[in-house]
Design a protein around this nucleic acid. Sequence first.
DNA 1: TTAATAGTGTCTCTGAGACACTATCGT
DNA 2: ACGATAGTGTCTCAGAGACACTATTAA
Lengths: 258, 258
Amino acid sequence: MSNEQAMQHYDVTKYRTPDGYTSDIAVFTIVPVKVEEFKPPVMDLNIMLIRRSMTDSEGRPNIEAGKWALPGGFVDPSETAFDSARRELKEETGVDRIHLEHFGVYDAPGRDPRGWIISNAHYAIVPEHKLSQRQANDDASEVELFPVQRVLSLDLAFDHARIIRDAIRVIERKLLETTVAKEFLPEEFTYSELQAVLLTVTNDSAIALDSAFRRKIKSLPFIEEVKGKTTTRTSKRPTQLYRFVDAELNKSIYHSKI
Amino acid sequence: MSNEQAMQHYDVTKYRTPDGYTSDIAVFTIVPVKVEEFKPPVMDLNIMLIRRSMTDSEGRPNIEAGKWALPGGFVDPSETAFDSARRELKEETGVDRIHLEHFGVYDAPGRDPRGWIISNAHYAIVPEHKLSQRQANDDASEVELFPVQRVLSLDLAFDHARIIRDAIRVIERKLLETTVAKEFLPEEFTYSELQAVLLTVTNDSAIALDSAFRRKIKSLPFIEEVKGKTTTRTSKRPTQLYRFVDAELNKSIYHSKI
DNA sequence: TTAATAGTGTCTCTGAGACACTATCGT
DNA sequence: ACGATAGTGTCTCAGAGACACTATTAA
């Protein structure tokens, strides 16, 4: 019995189907809070939102008009939600070839007034300098960066408050539990630059204390010294540059100490 | 401008919509390979599959008939995919109140011959004794457990080979990186029972070597001794019982050693 | 007593953490 | 010389790993 035969009998209208399938993207970037010469950097984790236009491209009133929302849009049948997220990120921010990852599905009944709409949430990590050419499009009248500490007090569209809260939790974990911090940093970086990135999501003393962290970085299996290469961009005394290397991480909780 | 006004203008048919929204569940269980009195257990990680019927409930030829597949089904508009997974697990295996977690979305074009069908994949952990009352239903002519080492050589429906491969990778990581191992164990367990569960997914010497693991279990912050309570179910000499306790795990890769 | 599993005493080695110290450079 | 950041020397303490040893029970 072949699938072809079965398909002749299959009634695609037998089940109620969703009214839409979308992708949302939480675009994170790290912006320097202050940059002074010969000073270690201080950073702040930001998320990019768009403000929904009052009217759509055909001049009709828009859903959730005027509210802040994650960039995103409808998935095309010829692509996956992940493809769609990549495409929309390119269209809406002009950035390409950046770290993008799926982190959740939002399908609670009633989450979107337009009907039964399922959204796949992704997070993206974009170095701030790549975000310079960002611009508003049809649906978005404004594009803006918000510090993660303040973003949840905005008037947010749909269930995006929930998605953003989850996204922030995910990126905080990912920054500490994986090597994605490298996506925020230049290829070669100083210990204080890595430290500044990590301090946007933790206050842990092992990271916050200079001497401890300076020592630690040398023993991390996924970071290596760039032999003989230094910079003075963070201090007067030349400081060692490091880079990330691929390494197997054994994250078992049954090994060594927690 | 209110959403009500906008809704009057909204055309729900503007975008092509999916032809279906489903949930799949990779049900894992651990079966004792051999149980002898006064012996430490040897375990094997299994996954539960159903064999798709040749005909559907109305007697017509079924899609992917005769192939092995993950249990699952169509999501109802009044529930989330997660709710649906829990409901279907209850219907198809009779088990309730077990550990269930979403781990991926499968939406590649062409993954299902019936059309544009999006599936949410979940894994479930079910102690074997709860799976006793399992039984076939309309769509499934048989229900069977397969060791994870052999399951991928079966003739699997749709893209379930891919989903199952991902599920196995996920549960292997979860067993070592979180405390879900407790879902496979009785409330109070011996070190060798925990060891047997972990050895289904790793050969690491820190876990495989009795003396090392016996020492280690005492220092794990998420496991505590059940004071003064022992059992002889795994040996002649009475052995200490342990239980899991809630504990904060700091899994940062920038802490201590990897 | 033997066989099998459970558990301990103790040594070594490594690495984390703390503190005081030194190094380098622009101003 | 001073101030600011980068980096080291060294001590202590905790814990991982290895090995030999002891403990408990059924048969």
